[in-house]
Amino acid sequence: MTAADDHNDDIALAGEYALHLMDADARRAFEARLDAEPALRALVVEWNEQLAPLADNFTPQTPPPAVKARINAVLFPATPSRTWSLWRVLAGSGLAAVLAVGVLVMLPQDPAPTPFTPSLTAEIAAEDASLIVLASFAPETGVLRIDRQAGAANAGRVLELWLIAEGADAPVSLGVLPDETQTDIALPETLAQAISGGTLAISDEPLGGSPTGVPTGDVLALGAVVSL
């Protein structure tokens, strides 16, 4: 066998490989050679590119939408892309402000004995109003007062509150909401400073809250933080 014969042999083998004509054993043997022989790899690439015009025979057809959903479910099971894209949109834009225009006229009537003088507020509401939580924040004390006016956690789940600071690319957890409809959350100073201009959101999470530090369930409600 001459060198020219060997070369022709490789040309034919690379062509068979490109056409996907080899059986499994032959393919494995050929791939072991590919790993070690860059020239052979280049030959396969060349074949595939040269045969590529034959792919004009594959007429494009739009697949049903369910296929994309299935792919996302397989690849990203923990964080549905719908949830993520929503976070991205919110974090990056002022869209959330639009959602919270119907702000609040009625603030909590000073339910606590300590004076509470909020200057920022947000109505965190589901689109269908199935969950409405009023949040008011008093910068002097760092207290975020939560008043859940409608809706509750699903059975065996909890509601987790998140802050998406203006320009931030990820939400920060402000904690799991208790069963009580009203609660005060003391925000650390860094978060207290970040809340102005931000967006508050509530996600559906497993008991104990998100195990990952980022929302894992559906975003149920949102509202932009606005000045009173």
Binding site: A18, D23, A24, D25, R27, R28, E31, L34, V44, V45, N48, E49, L51, A52, P53, L54, A55, D56
Partner: peptide, 13 residues
């Protein structure tokens, strides 16, 4: 028939 999976490449369009 025989089956296997692996590398990939092809076309321009």
């Amino acid at each position: 028939g025989n089956v296997d999976i692996d590398e990939v490449h092809d076309l321009k369009d």
